[in-house]
Amino acid sequence: MEISIKQVEQQQGTLNPLKFALWISLASISMLFAGFISAYMVRQAAGNWFEFVLPWYFTASTMMIIISSVLAHLAVEQFKKGKERLYKFYLLMTFVLGLSFVVLQYEGWQAMLASGIDLKANPSGAFVYVISGVHVAHVLAGLAGWVVAMVHGFGLKFKPTQKRINRLQLTAQYWHYVDILWVVLFLFLTYYR
């Protein structure tokens, strides 16, 4: 990795290759969900489709992940400015809200199960489980990224070097993506019943 960064530093004006690589992977993840969404639409058009309203937990979780994403942005900003206390606070809160997102999604699934919508029932429900489940898997990967960021943030001496800023920005970039992805999926599942 050192090689590439070295080379790019000489080619001025080029995006960090790791950030670029992350953008490409995000395009790839988008195609995964595009696959699900188009399957959903095709299956829905075929009829025999059971309509239901998403439990309120999903609305709450959407709020959580949006705020978490904002805090992640603030954490990066404060780190760049060298404000240690605020940075650590935002870092921790990003993680806590991210975790609460996962918990709320789980509660949402429990609520769906309680109202009789299980995997074996109509595909309209099964799609919600699969789409939100695969999304949560991506959120968990993001949370793992935040765990690493916190180990660095609280374990290492506070020193905003370019390398560490880059690393934090990568985590935040991914986090904003899963946030926006969920908002899109949530709106889709809410309004395209």
Binding site: I24, A27, S28, I29, S30, M31, L32, F33, A34, G35, F36, A39, V130, V134
Partner: peptide, 13 residues
């Protein structure tokens, strides 16, 4: 990169 993820979504279902 654009087509294999769609296969994965098919496989997951």
């Amino acid at each position: 990169l654009l087509s294999f993820p769609v296969l994965v979504s098919g496989f997951l279902l």
